[in-house]
Design a protein around this nucleic acid. Structure first.
Length: 255
DNA sequence: GTTGAGCGTT
C-alpha cells in the first residue's frame, strides 16, 4: 500500500519532458542514456500503438529535477538521434502538468535569457485540455500525412522548417478535414436512407437500391409502407441512371 | 517494409 503512495510521490516530484520528432525505431533505452547524461532521469516512457504496437514517434522523459530537465531540453533539443532531429520540450498535459507549470521554470526563462537559442522559441499554447481532447479524438496515428503525401513529398521539409521556426503548424489540415467531413456526412445521409442499419463497405460498387433485403421485417409489405419508395421504380427513378455508379452531383466533380 | 504533426502508460 505504502509502495503505491511512494510511487505516486515519485511521479509528482518528477518533471516530464516531451521528446518529439524521434524516429519510429528509437526506443526508451536509446533515449535514456542520452537524457541521463544531462541529469537524473526517473523514467522514460514511449507511448505505442495498441494495434500495431509501433512507436508513435515521441517519447516522455521524466527528470528528477527541473533544472536538469531544462538543461536537457536545451541540449538535446535539436540533437540528431538515429539520423533524425529530435525536439525536446516540457510536457504540458499529463498528471504532473501542475508541477511543470510551476517549474516552467521560471528558471528556464531567466537562465535561457543568457543563452541565445537559435531554435525552439517555445510556441505559446492557448488552451490545454480543450485542444488536447480535440486532437486526440481525431488523431489515430498520422491523420494529415495523406494530405501532404498525395500532394508532394518535399512539402515535409518545408513544413518541418516552418514549424520549427515560426510555429504555425495547424490551420490548413484542420480546415481541410472539416470540409471533407461535412461532405462525407452529407453523402452518408443519402445512403443511409436506403440502408441505414447495414454497413455497406462498398457503396460505390453497388449503389443500386433495387435490392430488397428483408432486414428484420417479416413482411416486406409493412416495410414498404413505411418507406416512401416501395417499388424499385421509385428507388431508381432514372432507371438506367441508377446503374451508373455516379449518384453524386457533378458539383463535387468540379472540385 | 511505409508514415512525421503532436502530448503519456505498464
Amino acid at each position: 500500500m505504502w509502495l503505491s503512495v511512494v510511487k505516486d510521490n515519485s511521479r509528482r516530484d518528477t518533471y516530464s519532458l516531451l521528446v518529439l520528432n524521434i524516429t519510429f525505431r528509437t526506443s526508451a533505452d536509446d533515449l535514456f542514456p542520452l537524457f541521463e547524461k544531462y541529469g537524473k532521469v526517473v523514467d522514460v516512457f514511449i507511448p505505442r500503438d495498441r494495434r500495431t504496437g509501433d512507436s508513435r514517434g515521441f517519447a516522455f522523459v521524466r527528470y528528477k529535477y527541473a533544472d536538469e530537465a531544462q538543461k536537457a531540453v536545451e541540449k538535446l533539443d535539436g540533437r540528431v538521434v538515429d539520423g533524425r532531429e529530435i525536439m525536446v520540450q516540457f510536457a504540458k498535459y499529463g498528471p504532473n502538468a501542475e508541477r511543470i507549470h510551476k517549474g516552467r521554470i521560471i528558471e528556464s526563462e531567466s537562465k535561457s535569457r543568457g543563452r541565445s537559442r537559435s531554435r525552439s522559441p517555445r510556441p505559446r499554447y492557448r488552451d490545454e485540455y480543450r485542444d488536447r481532447d480535440n486532437r486526440r479524438r481525431s488523431r489515430s496515428r498520422s491523420r494529415g500525412r495523406y494530405d501532404r503525401d498525395r500532394h508532394r513529398g518535399r512539402d515535409r521539409d518545408y513544413h518541418h522548417r516552418s514549424r520549427s521556426r515560426s510555429g504555425s503548424p495547424d490551420y490548413h489540415k484542420d480546415r481541410g478535414r472539416g470540409r471533407y467531413d461535412d461532405e462525407r456526412r452529407s453523402r452518408s445521409r443519402s445512403y443511409g436512407s436506403a440502408s441505414p442499419a447495414h454497413r455497406s463497405p462498398s457503396p460505390r460498387r453497388s449503389p443500386s437500391p433495387r435490392r430488397t433485403p428483408p432486414s428484420r421485417g417479416g413482411s416486406p409489405d409493412e416495410r414498404n409502407r413505411k418507406v416512401r419508395s416501395p417499388t424499385p421504380k421509385s428507388v431508381s427513378p432514372r432507371g438506367r441512371a441508377a446503374d451508373s455508379r455516379s449518384p453524386s452531383p457533378r458539383s463535387d466533380a468540379d472540385e
